[in-house]
Amino acid sequence: MAVDGGANLGGLAVGAGLTTLGVAALASAEVTVPVALAVGVGGLVVIGATDVIDETFHEHWSEDIHDHGVVGGILHGSANVADRSWGDVKRLGSDIGDGAKKAWNGFKGLF
């Protein structure tokens, strides 16, 4: 519970920080970006950062290092984190797509 809560807070902090830096960079470059786009990208950054942090907390680093040595274990664990995070992103995209299809079909059924 504490690990998941920590990952959530960490992801929120990292995502908010990266989004703030990005918006500040765009503002200094005098580029106009729609607010909805900035919020959407910021939300994706928060979700991605939270997922990577959560997967990092749940990785079995000591086993990886024991099995593959220090450098090999860190590389192996990092590859596991990246692979599982990418799988989560693909599932999230699929779930959003399925929900959009269901909503659209429900909307079409009203008429």
Rank of each mutant, 00 (worst) to 15 (best):
G69V: 04
K108D: 04
V45H: 01
S85Q: 03
W61V: 00
H68T: 01
G43R: 06
V41A: 10
H76F: 09
H68D: 09
A2S: 12
L21E: 09
L44E: 14
T56L: 07
V35W: 15
L18S: 11
T19S: 15
V45D: 08
D51F: 01
V39I: 15
E63A: 07
N105E: 15
A103E: 01
K102R: 12
G73K: 06
P34C: 02
I74R: 03
L9K: 11
G40N: 06
H66Y: 09
V41P: 03
S85W: 04
G99W: 05
D67F: 04
N8F: 15
G77E: 00
G77V: 00
L21G: 11
G22Y: 07
L44Q: 13
A36Q: 11
V33S: 03
G15P: 07
V81F: 01
L75E: 09
G48R: 03
L44T: 12
R91K: 15
D67E: 15
G72T: 03
G99C: 07
D54P: 00
A29T: 02
A24K: 15
G73Y: 01
G15L: 08
H60G: 00
V31K: 13
K102T: 13
T32F: 08
A13Y: 05
S62E: 15
I96V: 15
W104V: 14
G87M: 03
G48Y: 07
G72H: 05
A82Y: 05
G11H: 03
S62R: 14
T20W: 14
H76E: 06
A7R: 05
A100S: 04
A29Y: 02
A13N: 07
A13H: 02
G15E: 13
H60A: 05
G11C: 08
E55V: 03
D64E: 15
L44G: 15
V33C: 13
V14G: 09
E59H: 01
G5Q: 04
G5A: 08
V46F: 06
A29N: 02
D4M: 09
A103V: 10
V70M: 06
G93Q: 03
G99M: 04
F57Y: 14
H68I: 00
A38H: 06
R91Y: 12
S78M: 08
I65C: 01
D88M: 10
A7K: 06
V33I: 14
S78H: 02
G97I: 03
A82K: 00
V70P: 00
V41R: 08
G97M: 08
T19W: 13
G17T: 14
R84T: 08
G99Q: 07
A25D: 10
V23R: 06
D98C: 03
P34K: 12
W86V: 15
G11E: 07
G69F: 07
D54V: 00
A82E: 02
K108C: 09
A100P: 00
A38I: 08
I53A: 03
V3C: 02
L92D: 08
L37M: 13
E59M: 13
A16E: 02
V23W: 11
G42T: 05
